[in-house]
């Protein structure tokens, strides 16, 4: 193996490494923050965001149309202020609602949008007012057990 072809091979090897790293960064990692970079911004306040985080998907009927870009606590209202970026092709009616759901029992949390019926659309930067926070499973189970228990005792 002469030095020249070694130089070539090592060059190709290093290049492959750089390309692989770039693909990992853009396609696998979240360095590619520009998937919905050209979309518009909407806000929503939730009483409880659960384990929602930045880059969680925003969906309508299971189809991803955007992503969460920021989650802040509003110090006045003590509500979680979620900022999301929506694909510019999607125009949402003004009476649209937003809920935080979980995909499956252990899956990721995401924002599900329920489009309303009003002819006016939400302009960029608007706030969705009808929101439902994340359902706390512990609480749900607790409620169920409690109501079951009180139901049994009432029966006697």
């Amino acid at each position: 193996m002469n030095q020249r072809s070694i130089d070539w091979w090592v060059g190709i090897f290093v290049l492959l490494g750089i390309v692989a790293l770039a693909v990992l960064a853009l396609r696998v990692g979240n360095l590619a923050g520009f998937t919905y970079g050209r979309g518009y911004v909407l806000h929503a306040s939730f009483s409880n965001v659960g384990s929602l985080k930045t880059r969680s998907p925003v969906k309508i009927g299971g189809v991803t149309i955007g992503e969460v870009t920021d989650i802040q606590m509003n110090p006045k209202t003590f509500m979680a202020e979620v900022t999301m970026r929506i694909s510019p092709r999607i125009r949402l009616p003004a009476d649209t609602g937003a809920s935080i759901y979980t995909a499956g029992l252990l899956g990721e949390q995401y924002i599900s949008i329920q489009p309303g019926g009003m002819p006016q659309v939400l302009s960029p930067g608007a706030t969705i007012t009808m929101t439902q926070g994340a359902v706390n499973i512990d609480q749900l189970i607790g409620q169920m057990v409690f109501s079951k228990a009180s139901g049994t005792s009432a029966g006697h």
Binding site: R27, V28, N30, R55, E67
Partner: peptide
């Protein structure tokens, strides 16, 4: 396929996962 990549991108951090692995 969309979920596969979107979920991956949502949870893999470039610094925390990719660079630390390297």
């Amino acid at each position: 396929g969309g979920t596969f990549w979107a979920q991956m991108q949502a949870n893999v951090s470039f610094h925390g996962d990719i660079l630390n692995g390297l």
